[in-house]
Amino acid sequence: MELKEMFQRYYENSLIHKAAGTCDYERSKMNRILKLLNELSLYDSGQIDKNVLNRIISALKLKCSNKTINKLVLILKQSFRFNEIDFEYLQQFSKLREGKRRFNIIEHDELKAIMNHVVKLDSSIGNNLLYQVMVMLMLETGIRANELINIEIKNIDIERHCILLTTTKTKKERFIFFTSLSEYFITLMLNHGPVRKQLLFNSLKCREALACDLKYLIDKLKKELDISMLHAHMFRHTFATLSYNNGMDIFILKELLGHENIATTQIYTHITQNKLQAAYSKTFGSINQGIDTESLGITKQN
């Protein structure tokens, strides 16, 4: 079977069973691996054997991290399996070792700067009001980018300060909640400007907002506030970390974030524990500095 046809059939099946964001993600990975295969003069699934697969991995290592390679190989595996193409070596191929997963959060000072900047924007100018609602909801709910741009007006309950999300990564509906600050901007948005039909964010230059519009907004914030690192998912990580640090039950946090597995939510507890240990070591390291511990046979720890 031609590789292009193989990927296309898998993608068409994904469109039926998976969320739009997941399909877009898989499509980008398919295009990337297909481009590499074509560069290696590989156009048919029958051309790929054990030696060829190892050659593909070697070529990818020159351009990608092990984490990215694992994702690309996974798409290849799933496409072969879906099309019932037998390739035992590929299906048994072990993941390459990845570095520890890092979660970056927005630091306290940067978070304050973002909030102050957004609140002070003139809501009557351009798309400022739309940006204000987007940023406040990301900060207050930990919502995913694709879930944000697909919020339906009919699912917003202003009085109860909640929104029902129907387009989610897991395809399971869930509620998110917001404060009176977000309520102010959402109400302003619904009562002013162009008439909105279905989606809350459907008035950006007379069209629906897209993920690239959200990226543009965040890049703009990053530049204006001179923040070294900022992307949409950092708002989600920050929301989760702050919620847990302030005593939110981890099972409640799991539901708010829309995680299928509690283990995913527990990643944020590990971040907190690492920070606690680092703070502890810094404090007691300075207290013990200058004390002759070697005579006691105690080895200093960093």
Rank of each mutant, 00 (worst) to 15 (best):
E110I: 00
F177V: 06
F177Q: 07
R55I: 08
F7M: 10
G21S: 12
K254L: 00
E84C: 07
F93H: 13
I271G: 01
M136C: 09
G290W: 03
I163Q: 07
L139R: 01
A278M: 11
K154D: 14
R97F: 00
Y244S: 05
Y268N: 03
G142L: 02
Y89C: 02
I56L: 10
K205V: 13
A20D: 14
D226P: 01
E12Q: 12
E84A: 04
Y268D: 01
I156V: 13
E5T: 15
N288W: 03
K222V: 04
G285Y: 05
T299N: 10
F178E: 08
I75T: 11
L296E: 09
S180M: 05
L62D: 12
N51E: 14
S182K: 13
L225W: 03
E26H: 08
M136V: 11
I158L: 13
L53P: 05
V133Q: 03
I85Y: 02
E88M: 08
V118W: 04
S203I: 12
Y184P: 00
R32E: 13
K120I: 10
L276H: 02
E183N: 08
F82S: 05
R174P: 06
I143R: 10
L121A: 04
E152H: 04
E110V: 02
T22G: 01
M6L: 15
F103R: 13
K197V: 09
Q47K: 13
I153N: 06
M189W: 10
K215T: 15
K61R: 15
T293H: 09
R101A: 12
Q92T: 08
G258Y: 07
I56H: 01
M115N: 12
I149G: 08
L296K: 12
R9L: 13
V118D: 06
G290C: 01
S286L: 11
S228A: 11
S123R: 14
E39Q: 15
V135Q: 03
K63W: 02
I149D: 04
K50P: 00
R160L: 07
T141G: 05
Q273I: 07
M138P: 02
L40K: 14
E183H: 09
I163P: 09
E107C: 04
L190D: 06
S58N: 13
T166M: 12
Q301D: 08
Y11H: 10
I16E: 11
L165R: 08
M138K: 09
T269V: 12
A278C: 00
T141C: 09
S58G: 00
E2D: 15
N128G: 10
I186L: 06
I69E: 02
S243W: 05
I227M: 09
Y89S: 05
H270Y: 13
S14W: 07
I33Y: 00
R196L: 00
N104R: 12
N31M: 14
T269K: 11
R97H: 14
C162L: 14
E39N: 15
L190N: 05
F103E: 08
E159I: 08
M189E: 00
E2M: 07
A232D: 12
I75F: 02
N70P: 11
K71W: 02
A59Q: 13
N274E: 15
L96V: 06
E183P: 01
V135M: 07
E140F: 00
V135I: 15
R236A: 02
M134I: 15
